[in-house]
Design a protein around this nucleic acid. Structure first.
Lengths: 195, 195, 195, 195
DNA sequence: CCCTAATCGAGACGGTACGTCGGGTCTTCGT
DNA sequence: ACGAAGACCCGACGTACCGTCTCGATTAGGG
């Protein structure tokens, strides 16, 4: 996505572009965000944007990564249930922030932009899921999650309800509800004593 | 959404518009779908579209409802687990159809179009969820689902994982995986014998 | 032009249309005058306008005639020079009025609307010129104008300079200048003593 | 009018636009001339037209100037009467040409478009009148025209009758009539021996 | 340490679509 | 039966952006 040719690019311009995109998106909303507008606000030629990014979504993704890239490491207190509750509450909190709206817009755009989909997957979703996968594998090793459970499935079971509510009903679940969700889901993921 | 003023509108033109939108969306994709194009294909003035629909998404939604509006009734064999498996497999199958792509595009658009979001909610999602809610309440009465479980939460637990996979990873879960999902989720929703 | 079929037409509606056109033209200018607007302002269906008038210019022409139709009779004091000066000063004064702007707009429109040209000719210009022709013929009989002079040419010689200034330079000549004009023109129209 | 900002404009595109306007105006007439049509015919984006011209009339004016800009120099044989007859016959001949129709349309448009009026004045009428003024001043110096006669008035006296006939009666005077006109007008403009 | 080439800003260009306006026709409904 | 109301198809408006393309001007690096 962003730098396709790392050679000779003006880091200064890139910063300005990314920041302009972030600001404009907050001011006018993703729908009215335009490359023309970003260029003007950043004091940059349109070509400079087209040179390094394929779409407005890609610019915004860079802006998101700049701030979300280094997420807090997955909590590890030894109690998987508690850890997931903690992490998910933090995640949902982030969804409600200004950047959360950018993330939501990107998740929307991705439904009809394959290139952006790939980039979002690679640069944001995959890393996020990797961290979660690690925590799940750890929990499996500690016997807190059934060993035969696909980690990817576990993630879908845990995070799916949250995204469902957020993307389909435009609401973010409150903490208590997250706890209930995780408790319920974990019941099904826990090793069955009777087998 | 669609008819804002039901008075004196040409049913013939409306049909043509909706069908043209559906066809064009399949031919060129949602991103390249335009009101201009729909009007041309339908042999209709642009004003006629703007008169009755606020956006291309709204037209497409009407097209979707025309075909999905009367969904198959929720299965009721007495076995809630089996019924949900059945229904969800059907739903995921629909996601993979051509209309499924329209639905996906709408779910994307909805992330930055509040008006469309409201319409999609009201005319498609709410009815779908109502049917699921009914089935869940029935299951609760039959003792197959814990009585203290919020039906909306149950829906999110069941369908969330599917949408997560579909919207975030652009994949539809295969039937076996759906079964595993439902089994796992129901474990957490089943009445606890120990309480 | 105006009533093509005098049968069964609502005199009330016609009045309203003509007046609405006149008012709107003064408020927004001829360029922005529209049949749609006239109909709305007059509280009349568009069809009612199309039924009786072929264009917005035709409506405005009716409005003009209503007020200018019965122009003051051509002055006749026995002194042709003085009479023409009097009449032309009145005419130029009228050009500067609000209705004068309507007349000017019509003279403009007429340059690319043959139907309107014919109507304007028939209903406004011809009558005006007829009155002037009569006065000229009288003057000829009284020996104040050369007998071999085409009356139409005389009119062009007298009024041409005024219209030139008004239509090409957007100015109306002041009274003193009109006097100079007429004096000069009459010098060439006076019977030549030496012939 | 035409170039508002002379910087970096594509001369090629400008030529194409002007020529397309001229051709279209001859083919469909001024009333049906549209910027949309000009752009299409010229193979040019609409914006390129709007960038450099404020209206279709302005484009057409440029087209007119391109061909009429360098008018034949005012004849000067020493005989002012003869010279004006020559020049006016040529002018009236031009009125009857295809471009003459464009000129007539512009004179019409100018009656309700102030911006175009200013441009027409500045770029076509003023230069034409300047040439005539020069010839008149020369004639005054040679004693063929009264010295106290305003040159602008002289022009109105001479050309007014022609424009009157052309714009109000949609006819162009034939040569013989022009001669009679000029003779008559000059009689009033000649120095009076008796004063 | 200059020369050459890449990159930059700026913004014009050919396009597509927007959302609006009005033209002229046709249909519906109320008086 | 007429006329107001207004929906209809259509064409054009003027605007906004798209993505591409020149333009100098600057700037960095390899000769």
């Amino acid at each position: 996505m962003s730098p396709r040719r790392p050679e000779r690019r003006s880091e200064e311009a890139a910063k300005a572009v990314i920041q302009a995109a972030r600001e404009l998106c907050q001011e006018v909303g993703y729908a009215k965000l335009s490359i023309e507008g970003i260029a003007a606000r950043a004091g940059v030629g349109k070509n400079t944007i087209y040179r390094w990014w394929p779409s407005k979504g890609a610019v915004l993704l860079d802006g998101l990564l700049e701030l979300w890239g280094e997420a807090a490491p997955f909590p590890d207190t030894g109690d998987a249930v508690a850890d997931f509750k903690t992490q998910m509450k933090a995640a949902v909190g982030a969804f409600s922030s200004e950047l959360g709206q950018h993330y939501r817009a990107l998740l929307g755009e991705v439904q009809h932009d394959g290139v952006l989909a790939e980039a979002l997957q690679e640069r944001l979703l995959r890393p996020m899921m990797a961290r979660a996968t690690d925590r799940i594998e750890l929990a499996k090793r500690q016997g807190q999650i059934r060993g035969d459970l696909d980690a990817e499935l576990a993630i879908e079971l845990l995070y799916g309800p949250i995204y469902h509510r957020w993307l389909l009903s435009q609401r973010a679940p409150e903490p208590a509800r997250i706890e209930a969700m995780v408790d319920s889901v974990f019941t099904g993921m826990t090793p069955r004593p009777d087998l």
